[in-house]
Structures are given as structure tokens and as C-alpha cells.
């Protein structure tokens, strides 16, 4: 008897199981799509989970307006290929209408404003579950996150009041107005994601691969030169061969010096690197508990 599956196939089976639970237990689930590799993985898994039927989740992109142009192009192609429904929540609109106020200063970011727009969209669409591509290995506040994470009527996460999760049984019971965040790829690590995307030959945005870009350095992190980030006088722009390890809003996504031009080279790079992928995220560097604080307010 040889009924073995490797760790990637086991993670895949687990994530598909969780997605099917969401489709079965919730009335109106939405899949949060950022354009990053984790949400690309999520869409890929959802496609497999319900094949040959369409993905039973609407995709929701919270658009800060400060994107890498490559992200939007990739998103639109993916949505067309999946024949999926996409909703875009716009931070720009929210600022224009006076609902949100833009941060000022050199490190201004729209990252925090995303939360308000996200909660708004969830309420507007009456979504009772929002699937996200967060992983427990990313950040220590996420190490204790559940697959099914309960949020109160304000969208807040209470780390002390989460339901125990046993075996593969997920309790989705909730009152009107409350919702769940669901994280089907909780148990994947950054390396697992890359190994799996390589194994499955999933097409990825060009940003993840080494390319020439004009960049500048701030607090030890390389940032892409962009009209959305005001530079200090001493910050000089130069050309460098870089790639993104995570893709978020331009203003807070660091780029890395790298020669990794294909996915196997990326896997090799990650397996030997000494920095976590969020080490380049300036939004996490604001304080030691910035992720925990943001999660409590309803961040992804």
C-alpha cells in the first residue's frame, strides 16, 4: 500500500476543503483579492475546489489607487479567465467623498484607509464571509489566527474571544451583522506558496521576477520610485535589478535586490534568505504590534 501525498498536495486538499465549507456554510461569501501571489493562489485553489462549476465567490479588490500598473492588468486578465465577478472598493473615492482622510508626510500610506473601505464594502454587499489569503507564518499576530475567524458587528477581531477549532469542524454560526474572515491557506508558508505555484505552473505578475527598476532607499528598505511617494531631498533615485516578495500598495511595498528571473530561482532565493517577506513592508515596521493593532480594527 502506498497512499502518500506530499506536503503541497496535503495543503491543497486542506485549503480546498475549507473553501468548500465556506461555500456550504455561508450565504454570501466574498474573496478578497489583492493581486499578490497569495490571493492568486486562493483563486487558483477556488477554481479547483468547484470545477467544473464557476467559483461561487465574488472577488473584492480594495484599490488604494496607488498600485503597480502590472497588478491591475493581471487582475483584469485573471477575472476574465475565471469568468468571475469583481467588485472594486476604491480608497480614492472614499477620500474624494470625505469619508476617509489621507495621511500626510513622507511615510504617508493608504494602507490604514483600506480597512474602512473594506468594512464599508462588506456591509454594502451584505457579505457574511470574507476569504483572505493571510498565512500564519507571516507575522506573529497571525500565528494564532483561526481558519474561521469571527468578527463582531464592527468588523473587529478579539483575540481573546475566538472559538476553538478542532479537527476539521468549523463553526460558522453568527448573529446578524457579524461576519467571518476565513483563511484557507493559514498553514502554508511563503516557501510552500512558491513551491506550489511552480509545481502548478501558475502564471504570475512580472513584478515578482527580477527586473530593472528605478528605486530609492529609505530606512534600509528599497522602494520603487513612484509619483505616489514623496521623496526627501537626500533620497537619490538609481537603477537596480529588483523583484517584489510581496505585492501591496506601491507606497509600502519594498523591493528586493534579486537576480531571480524564474520561479525556481525564487524558491532557491527564499530557501536561503535570512529576512522574512514582511521585512520589506514598511506598514509592519511602524511598531512591534502594528499588525495586531490593525487586525483588531478589522484589517485583512
Amino acid at each position: 500500500m502506498n497512499y502518500h501525498i506530499n506536503h503541497l498536495k496535503e495543503l491543497e486538499a486542506e485549503s480546498i476543503y475549507v473553501m468548500r465549507e465556506v461555500a456550504a456554510q455561508f450565504e454570501n461569501p466574498v474573496l478578497m483579492f489583492s493581486g499578490g501571489k497569495d490571493s492568486i493562489l486562493m483563486v487558483h485553489l477556488a477554481y479547483k475546489a468547484f470545477y467544473p462549476a464557476r467559483i461561487p465567490f465574488t472577488l473584492l479588490h480594495i484599490d488604494t489607487g496607488h498600485n503597480f500598473p502590472e497588478t491591475i492588468q493581471y487582475r483584469d486578465e485573471l477575472v476574465a479567465r475565471m469568468n468571475a465577478k469583481l467588485i472594486v472598493g476604491s480608497v480614492q473615492e472614499s477620500i474624494d467623498s470625505g469619508k476617509a482622510r489621507e495621511e500626510k508626510g513622507f511615510n504617508a500610506s493608504r494602507n490604514g484607509l483600506q480597512t474602512a473601505v473594506l468594512l464599508d464594502e462588506l456591509e454594502k454587499g451584505k457579505f457574511d464571509a470574507a476569504l483572505g489569503g493571510a498565512r500564519r507564518d507571516e507575522e506573529k499576530a497571525r500565528a494564532k489566527e483561526r481558519f474561521f475567524s469571527h468578527r463582531d458587528e464592527f468588523g473587529q477581531w478579539d483575540p481573546k474571544n475566538q472559538r476553538p477549532e478542532l479537527w476539521n469542524i468549523f463553526n460558522s454560526k453568527h448573529f446578524m451583522g457579524e461576519h467571518f474572515r476565513v483563511f484557507p491557506i493559514s498553514n502554508w508558508t511563503e516557501l510552500d506558496v512558491w513551491q506550489y505555484l511552480a509545481m502548478e505552473e501558475v502564471p504570475l505578475p512580472s513584478l515578482y521576477f527580477a527586473h530593472e527598476r528605478s528605486v530609492f532607499e529609505r530606512d534600509g528598505v528599497l522602494l520603487a520610485d513612484s509619483e505616489f511617494i514623496p521623496k526627501k531631498p537626500e533620497e537619490k533615485v538609481f537603477m537596480e535589478t529588483v523583484r517584489c516578495r510581496t505585492i501591496g500598495d506601491v507606497t509600502c511595498t519594498g523591493v528586493w535586490k534579486s537576480d531571480a528571473k524564474d520561479i525556481e530561482a525564487i524558491i532557491e532565493e527564499i530557501a536561503t534568505t535570512r529576512m522574512t517577506e514582511r521585512g520589506g513592508r514598511t506598514d509592519d515596521k511602524r511598531s512591534e504590534t502594528s499588525m495586531e493593532d490593525r487586525k483588531k480594527k478589522g484589517y485583512f
Binding site: H4, N6, H7, L8, E10, L11, L191, Q195, M199, I267
Partner: peptide
């Protein structure tokens, strides 16, 4: 090592 044969 070959990650394709690694178990969980």
C-alpha cells in the same frame, strides 16, 4: 532536496 516528495 526535492520538495515534491516532502511529507507534512
Amino acid at each position: 532536496a526535492d520538495y515534491k516528495s516532502s511529507e507534512l
